[in-house]
Design a binder for these strands. Structure first.
Lengths: 125, 125
DNA sequence: CCTAGATCTACACCCAACGTCAGGTTTAGG
DNA sequence: CCTAAACCTGACGTTGGGTGTAGATCTAGG
């Protein structure tokens, strides 16, 4: 698959794929002589995983540090202690984010109720 | 309180406060002639709320759209329907984020376990 | 074989959210 | 009253995460 198809299937522009490649987030099985990049199915999954990690608020360099964990053979991963550190830091972070998000949601719900009451009241008068 | 104290207490730089003011996120009870900005206690709370909303991934313009909800008298709020819409959209968003974050956490935990096993195994050999 | 359409590289530019710098004004304390 | 410390504004720089564009090259279908 060429970059155009990958781009379409993963929902990112080909410019973004080039950019990610420079940052070491994705790499094609590039055809030797020509310059054209060719990708396999795994590349689609990889870009989707990157998008998911981005939604969680990770920066691209942080994603680069752990993305291989999801796609390489685990036995081949270098610097396991370092990866472990990163994962544990992310876990702490995720917990904090969960707490904050839960509180935010409670806040939101009470504000929504308040707004609905105010609107209903305004309608009655 | 002047901008220096506010800055220190809220944990943001004075340039950030200037920037937020331009975006309509905060406004001082500015002394008329002089140019110096003076703030009250509410300003500290307001900056803290802004920081909290930022941590949830809202952009500054989105925060600007709802921040008054937290500090103005609710009866004085204009465009209640619009505010309600924004809040409900944020609620949907927060739910999605919660789901994603929960799944991410599960993932993280299983990866941490895997890493720990690999490290222990490497140590034994 | 030839051309349209897909890709290539490189550089420039964009936006958000600030930080830095410079030069001028205001305030507070001795 | 005088000066250091705090404050002001405006212009420019920076980082992260990209997008736009130009000019050249490659590939595929008629």
């Amino acid at each position: 698959m060429q970059i155009g198809e990958l781009s379409e299937r993963a929902g990112v522009s080909h410019r973004t794929i080039h950019y990610y490649e420079r940052l070491g987030l994705v790499k094609p099985a590039e055809r030797e002589g020509t310059g054209y990049r060719y990708y396999d199915e795994v590349a689609v999954k990889r870009l989707e995983k990157i998008a998911a990690l981005k939604r969680l608020g990770l920066r691209l360099d942080e994603i680069a540090a752990v993305i291989d964990l999801y796609f390489e053979d685990a036995n081949g991963i270098k610097g396991k202690e370092r990866v472990l550190e990163i994962l544990e830091a992310q876990l702490v972070n995720a917990d904090a984010q969960l707490d904050e998000l839960t509180a935010f949601k409670r806040d939101l719900e009470s504000n929504i109720t308040r707004m609905q009451e105010l609107i209903a009241q305004a309608r009655r008068t």
